[in-house]
Nucleic acid binder design. Structure first.
Length: 376
RNA sequence: GUAAUUGUAGCUCAGUUGGUUAGAGCGUCGGAUUGUGGUUCCGAAGGUCGCGGGUUCGAGCCCCGUCUUUUACC
């Protein structure tokens, strides 16, 4: 993997860059649609590629390990071949799911013991095991196994949790360096900065992560219950320290406004379930605000879903029709909303990139920020 | 016509031997959702208990009349 920093904004920390992987290039800042179980829910790969213009998608280690399992993934020749997505893929390590989803989890120095949310079966994730699993999945970018500290953790817990994440990080790197991709292309490993909402912990974590000289770095443990302002503050602390010449990935974030604020603070990559999950629940993000498609006011509004939207669904279908589809629980509603929201997110980061290169990012951000957060 | 049966929220229905402010599901309306357990979660509005009279301290529940639903018989 290679990262080329193409342009840095004069008035802010915003950057435009280019990541090159064996499965193609990624223009940053970028938003990565989440495909937890090997599929972006309700969306075809053809739509992701041609219409949404996704450049990289996510898969999830915890979910793919449980189903279909490593045997099937290896027989398939890796996730790219299995799900027919030929562009870059990033896998989350499953750290988040072990803590948010699995039953009866127990942390030890060795790793995390947990029970499957599907059948209750007992499993153990160690840093080494997770590296092996991500090798088998075959993502272009692998994430280290960490503990995602809750946003409301007290200082002493956050400090202890960070220390464990740091010891696991070293073990991940060792195992990663001792192994190689099973399918003939290269994989990169991104470490994750934790430290909750405590600046000194975040600073220490970022310094430790930076010292590993990884191909890219991630900021985790944000948007997990802490105030939004704290999140922005932590991004600033961390990005002061993370290397300039490597991509920075803010995990699990966020709203359109969150993206703009984080881009301004020097973040290059994002993923979030919000455009897809909220889309499936009837919420549409647009350039001029957020719509709840179940609201009655759209019942007889026959104007396009989004007159300025870039995806084919935006002008093919009316608001009234989409509302109808949601009210009667048609599957097509979920597909339309997911495509629209993802296309909007991808447009937002592409436009941010264009504005950064044009030297106009801060002005543009101010101009658009209130619009995208408004409820209409 | 006779006998039985039914009537409670927009819909389908609970509602104990009569006992505070009559409930549920669905629907309607609104909100939530941040490294996804694949139609989720939370909240709100909505009823003169068919109508009229009576008994009772108190009636959705008991009595009378009337209208109504369904069925059987003549």
């Amino acid at each position: 993997m290679k990262f080329e920093l193409q342009h840095t904004d004069a008035q802010s920390k915003a950057r435009a860059g280019l990541i090159t992987t064996d499965h193609g290039q990624i223009e940053t800042p970028i938003f990565m649609p989440v495909g937890t179980q090997g599929a972006v829910k309700a969306v075809h790969m053809t739509e992701l590629e041609s219409d949404i213009k996704a450049q990289i998608i996510l898969g999830n280690t915890y979910h793919l390990y449980l189903r279909p399992g490593l045997d099937i993934l290896e027989q398939a020749g890796g996730l790219h071949k299995f799900n027919s997505w030929n562009r870059p893929i990033l896998t989350d390590s499953g750290g988040f799911q072990v803590f948010s989803l699995a039953h009866n989890r127990k942390l030890t120095e060795e790793g995390a013991i947990f029970r499957s949310h599907i059948d209750g079966s007992k499993h153990m994730f160690t840093p080494e095991r997770v590296m092996d699993i991500e090798r088998t999945i075959g993502a272009d970018i692998m994430m280290v196994f960490d503990e995602c500290t809750p946003g409301d953790a007290d200082y002493s817990y956050a400090k202890k949790s960070l220390a464990l994440t740091e010891r696991w990080l070293d073990r991940c790197i060792t195992r990663f360096n001792d192994t190689e991709c099973k399918y003939g292309y290269t994989q990169a490993l991104f470490p994750i900065v934790q430290g909750c909402v405590y600046p000194d912990l975040r600073k220490r974590a970022a310094e430790n992560v930076a010292s590993k000289e990884a191909e890219g770095n991630a900021i985790g443990g944000l948007a997990v219950g802490e105030p939004t302002e704290k999140m922005y503050e932590m991004i600033e602390v961390v990005n002061e320290i993370l290397p300039q010449d490597k991509p920075r990935y803010l995990m699990g974030v966020g709203t359109p406004a969150n993206l703009l604020e984080a881009i301004e603070r020097g973040v290059d990559m994002f993923d979030c379930i919000m455009p897809t999950r909220n889309g499936r629940n009837g919420q549409l993000f647009t350039r001029y605000g957020i719509l709840n498609m179940r609201n009655k006011k759209w019942a007889n509004d026959f104007s396009p879903i989004d007159a300025e939207g870039r995806s084919f669904v935006d002008t093919l279908y009316s608001k009234a029709y989409l509302r109808h589809l949601f009210i009667v629980n048609e599957i097509l509603a979920l597909q339309i909303a997911s495509i629209h929201n993802l296309a909007f997110y991808l447009w937002l980061v592409k436009e941010a990139r264009t504005q950064i290169i044009a030297g106009n990012f801060s002005n543009w951000k101010k101009y658009i920020l209130e619009d995208v957060s408004r409820r209409i």
